[in-house]
Design a protein around this nucleic acid. Structure first.
Lengths: 367, 367
DNA sequence: CTGTTAGCGCGTTCAA
DNA sequence: TTGAACGCGCTAACAG
């Protein structure tokens, strides 16, 4: 056990938070000859304490370095002022700028409202992930939860709905449960992207899809297929490859696409990271992105703007979404009624250099 | 106030955690006709409870869905089993894959030891950042802290040292305080990088430095200068530009360098993100990276391998560093003595396409 | 205005 | 083998 010396007075005659452990209300009360209650109320700013007493208490608290014990307060208040956030990381590492921005948005908004943020990183759909959710909820560690990257038949949402704990999701669900959520309109986004390519003369579009259990992938794919159908176009099965959302995944998928004959004239990637990988693959093959073959992404993460060529993509305000989701959750926790429980954001098309008009002649790979 | 119904029995005759709030030890005790103490001990696995009693308790606990209240336990145990981690984000967003990997490493290691992770994102050297540290410590929210990206005369470290709270840093310090830390040997790293370029015939090296208050930047710069001096080379002042560690920062810095006459034949960036920006700038100017001009980074984040051209850099195992730092902190918290309080890791040189032999003739920018 | 009493949920003495 | 009593640190209801 650590050394603990109690009842020692500092030079000013007051205990300070040092070896003797933190200063408590009890310490203050004893030093002042008051009851714990009075000290507590003086500090809390109640108006039923004598001004002179309050002053004495405040001074002593400052001098002795009193800081309330958050844990004790939580137990008594019955709430934790903490938000839980389990980041889905396949992995075990993750380096998707997407989550970084989201985390920053969530964290800053939480801090703004004096909420703490409890973060875990877990592989999706594993026992560990489920255990983490259960622990956060059943152990009463958090007042609410943020769920991101919703999945098909999402077990997290099904479970959360049964608990009654406030939660907000980034992403919609196919389950028969109603819950507050924010999502971008991925369907519309891919319609716009597809239209953009079709306008440029592209007819052979390939698609690097997201893992099929992710809701956002479903919407995006459906959007692309819708716009193609509208133009009486379609994607042969070999033009659709499921990627893992990483740069490497986009790279290998594109290599496969380039080996097809005829190869696509445009590659639509389900997210920016895979699109960046696609650019690499095309360049490695000797073709020129934006001329010989067009590539699009989705998200508009910072590297999209710095890639070579710069990436045509759909912009969604990830940082702001993080803030908004967090803000909604806090409102919910505080018992307020959300003015809008379901927010669908319209992404905007950002046309850059990675897309261009389709070439007339057949592709010729330079030696 | 929310609806609360107490003392209602479920279909099995037992209370369950629903509208009536979570099941507590008291509920269990009442339902079983035992004292709270006995129930507590049975659940804790003490050997002084009758086997039959224990079984009854375990069964009831399972059926009624008892889960201990973590907050109450914390108050009683006097520890939080929580680690604090304040991510320095300039801002307000951050999308440095570097921190993502670090966070994953820390988070997974914490989870492995049943520790929770309290995360904040704050702008370095601001009152908000300081307030966050104070709150975590003085409010007794965490048992220990992780400090990353140490700074010159780091106020966080100076403060932490006075508190006695366990902490581990990723990065060394110039302060007169001793504390456990892990760091990569940035000095040696830039010596190797510099030597590599010199071996390729480069004599005009430029440096995109880190903000001067960051310790890792100091080491890296010193390493580069050391190796140059050893070869009786030096960098003119205009060859050194301080960047902000972002891709955009590297981009603009490199534009400035390219406008110099003569321009450098190699650009050494203090981190990968800036190196990637440097590649963009060079390409935009029409020169070929790896032939007309060489570029190096530091960190070996995933995009470094996928860039075009791929990036020559120093690899440091960020994910593992996260794990190690977290592991050390937990040992410290649990009162163990660290076998090694100061760990200095050797980064390894990864030679890729962005560096090549210096060209003989003068640079000619294609029209 | 102030103090006494009670309780948040849990673990840990100490008796019985 | 079990239970009563107490404390962790704080807030709230109720007297006086």
């Amino acid at each position: 056990m650590g050394l603990v010396i109690r009842n020692v007075l500092g030079s000013a005659g007051f205990r300070r938070a040092t070896l003797m452990g933190p200063v408590t209300l009890k310490d203050l009360a004893e030093a002042l000859g008051l009851s714990i209650t009075t000290v507590s109320r003086a500090l809390a700013g109640y108006n039923d304490v004598a001004a002179s007493t309050r002053q004495r208490v405040m001074d002593a608290a400052a001098q002795m370095g009193y800081v309330p014990d958050v844990t004790a307060r939580r137990l008594q208040k019955g709430r934790t002022d903490t938000i839980g956030f389990v980041i889905p990381t396949s992995g075990p590492r993750f380096s998707d700028p997407y989550f970084s921005e989201l985390l920053a948005g969530i964290g800053n908004e939480a801090a703004r409202h004096n909420y703490d943020l409890l973060v875990s990183t877990r592989t999706p759909d594993t026992p560990e992930e489920e255990a983490t959710y259960r622990r956060l909820i059943e152990g009463r560690l958090v007042d609410g939860l943020l769920v991101v990257r919703t999945r098909v038949k999402d077990r997290r949402l099904a479970y959360l709905a049964t608990t009654g704990l406030p939660f907000v999701a980034f992403g919609r669900s196919d389950l028969e449960v109603e819950f507050p959520c924010v999502d971008e309109d991925g369907f519309r986004g891919l319609e716009l992207l597809g239209q953009h390519l079709i306008d440029l003369g592209h007819r052979r579009l390939a698609f690097i899809a997201a893992p099929e259990n992710l809701m956002f992938g479903v919407y995006r794919r459906a959007g692309l297929e819708a716009v193609l159908q509208r133009h009486e176009l379609s994607m042969p099965a070999e033009y659709v490859i499921v990627g893992d959302l990483t740069q490497r995944g986009g790279y290998t998928a594109t290599n496969q696409l380039l080996d097809l004959s005829p190869p696509p004239t445009a590659v639509v990637a389900c997210n920016d990271l895979m699109a960046l990988g696609a650019i690499s693959a095309v360049q490695k093959s000797g073709l020129v992105v934006g001329r010989d073959i067009s590539i699009t992404g989705f998200d508009d993460i910072p590297p999209a703007e710095h890639a070579h060529p710069t990436l045509t993509t759909m912009r969604q305000p990830i940082y702001d979404i993080g803030r908004q989701v967090c803000s909604m959750l806090i409102q919910l926790i505080q018992g307020e009624v959300l003015t809008k429980r379901h927010v669908l954001l319209q992404p905007t098309l950002i046309v850059r250099e990675s897309t261009g008009p389709v070439q007339d002649g057949p592709h010729v790979r330079p030696a």
